[in-house]
Amino acid sequence: MQLRDIMTNNVQTVNPNSSVKDAATIMKNLNVGSVPVCEGKRAVGIITDRDIAIRNVANNGDSNTPVTQVMSKNMIYGQPDMSDQEAATLMAEKQIRRLPVVENDNLVGIVSLGDLAVNSRSDMEAGEALSTISKPSKPAK
């Protein structure tokens, strides 16, 4: 099955000049841990709850800090014609739970591990991806 068949099409985004508070509010309202960052429809990055905690709060940033200062600019993404198995493998390798779907530089959707899990053919791949993503890291000494 291709990502275009299982992705969420109506994706909430923020623009690079939005505040981290705006991004956090979207995450809270949608019960998600990341929001794509777009200029119009062009995907330019992604901001996660971890980005806000580590790159903003831990560095004495405030709620008005622009998203562009803390977002991940090297966004990992899939394409609509990518298979669900390819997506699960990519998500496991990159240890991500949500995969933005981009076509011609424009955000067209997003796929979560849950989306992969409800597809019976990719159930095993989603489980393997989750086990890889959820491996604990060792604290820096």
Rank of each mutant, 00 (worst) to 15 (best):
M1K: 05
R4Q: 12
I6N: 07
I6P: 02
M7N: 10
T8V: 09
N9M: 01
N10C: 02
N10F: 02
V11I: 14
V11D: 12
V11K: 07
Q12P: 00
T13G: 10
V14M: 02
N15T: 15
N15K: 06
P16D: 12
P16E: 14
N17D: 15
N17G: 06
S18A: 15
S19L: 07
V20E: 03
K21A: 13
D22R: 05
A24T: 10
A24R: 02
I26L: 14
M27D: 12
L30Q: 14
L30I: 01
N31H: 11
V32N: 03
G33N: 10
V35E: 08
V35L: 05
P36G: 11
P36T: 09
G40Q: 10
G40R: 06
K41M: 06
R42K: 15
A43E: 10
G45E: 14
I46R: 05
I46H: 07
I46V: 15
I46G: 09
I47Q: 08
T48Y: 04
R50I: 08
R50H: 11
D51C: 06
I52Q: 08
A53P: 09
R55Y: 02
N56M: 11
N56F: 00
N56G: 15
V57L: 14
A58G: 13
A58N: 09
N59G: 01
G61L: 06
G61W: 05
N64K: 12
N64G: 11
V67D: 10
V67F: 07
M71W: 01
S72I: 01
K73P: 00
N74Q: 13
N74V: 01
M75W: 00
I76S: 06
Q79G: 02
P80A: 08
P80C: 03
M82D: 15
M82L: 07
M82Y: 09
S83C: 04
D84Q: 01
Q85M: 07
Q85H: 06
Q85K: 12
E86A: 14
A87S: 05
A87Y: 03
T89Y: 03
L90A: 14
L90Y: 02
L90M: 15
E93L: 04
E93T: 04
E93R: 05
K94V: 02
Q95W: 00
Q95F: 00
Q95N: 04
Q95R: 15
Q95T: 11
I96S: 10
R98H: 15
R98I: 04
L99P: 01
P100S: 09
V101G: 07
V101P: 01
V102Y: 03
N106W: 00
V108A: 10
V108G: 09
G109M: 05
I110Y: 05
I110C: 06
S112L: 04
G114R: 11
G114S: 14
D115E: 03
D115L: 00
L116H: 06
V118F: 05
V118S: 09
N119I: 04
N119T: 14
D123K: 08
D123F: 05
E125P: 01
E125L: 00
E125Y: 01
A126I: 04
A126L: 05
G127P: 00
G127I: 06
L130G: 09
L130M: 14
S131R: 13
S131D: 13
T132E: 15
I133S: 07
S134G: 13
S134N: 13
S134C: 10
K135E: 15
S137I: 12
K138C: 04
P139Y: 07
A140T: 13
